[in-house]
Simulated assay, not measured.
Amino acid sequence: MDKNIRKANVSDLARITDIYNWAVENTTASFDINSHTIEQRTEWFAEHDDRHPLIVYELEGKVVGYASLSEFRSKEAYDSTCEMSVYVDHEYHNRGIGKALIEEIIKLGKDNGFHVIISVISADNYISIEIHKKFGFVLCGDIKQVAFKFGRYLDCLFYQLFI
């Protein structure tokens, strides 16, 4: 594991929330429209366990990115599939942090017995699409105009990786 990556602690929740809220307010990386409070993110945090990990990237004592594996769907037949999310503080983009987080979360997914990792990406999030392709994710679905954010309809792309 990269020396800057570790399992997230509840004390990281404020920074994780700040990173996520910036993406909500400024990008289509998240399909949320409204920012979240720390209380709202506490339930999400609690959903992550040893099988569905939440990891952070820390530089000089500051959390600057995070990645998670979440339940893909609640039906038991989906237990071998998970959904990946990765967010990096916008002030730390283009430093290899996202790449390091993806490498580690894929490894954890494999170690935890998952067969497939899914990522749901806005069709206009070209950087995310390209980094997913570099890791071997392939497009497996394209749903047109199913999200509405920033005054326009967005297409959702589903990418998958067999691990």
Rank of each mutant, 00 (worst) to 15 (best):
E83K: 05
A46R: 10
V88E: 03
T81K: 04
F148Y: 15
D12N: 11
W22Y: 15
K110W: 09
N94R: 14
I121P: 05
L101Q: 05
I129E: 06
Q145Y: 13
L139S: 08
T37Q: 04
G98A: 12
N9D: 10
N94I: 00
I163V: 15
L154C: 09
E130M: 12
I118A: 02
E83V: 12
G98D: 10
F31L: 08
D124N: 15
I127R: 15
I19T: 02
H48I: 07
V10R: 12
F31G: 09
Y20P: 06
T28A: 08
R95M: 14
G141N: 08
G65S: 03
V88L: 00
E71A: 05
H52E: 02
S80V: 07
H132M: 14
H48Q: 01
I102S: 00
S68N: 11
G109D: 06
A147H: 12
Y20W: 09
Y126G: 13
V120G: 09
H52Y: 15
N112E: 08
I143L: 14
L108M: 14
V63F: 00
A46E: 14
E25N: 12
S11P: 06
D111G: 03
S74H: 10
M84V: 10
K75F: 10
G141R: 06
T27L: 07
T37E: 06
K7L: 06
K7I: 13
P53M: 06
F150M: 02
F150I: 01
F150R: 08
F72C: 03
G136F: 13
I55V: 14
Q160F: 05
R41N: 10
N34D: 13
S80F: 13
N21E: 04
L157D: 00
H115N: 14
S128V: 04
I55T: 02
S119L: 13
F162D: 00
I163S: 09
V56L: 04
D79A: 05
R15W: 03
I105A: 10
N94W: 04
G113R: 01
K133F: 08
C140K: 15
A100S: 15
L101F: 09
L69A: 03
V64Q: 01
S30A: 13
G65W: 03
K62W: 00
A29M: 12
R95G: 01
A77W: 02
N94H: 15
A8V: 08
I97Q: 04
A8K: 01
L59A: 06
V120M: 14
V64N: 03
F135K: 05
F135T: 11
G151T: 08
G98I: 06
T27E: 05
S80I: 08
G61A: 02
R73M: 10
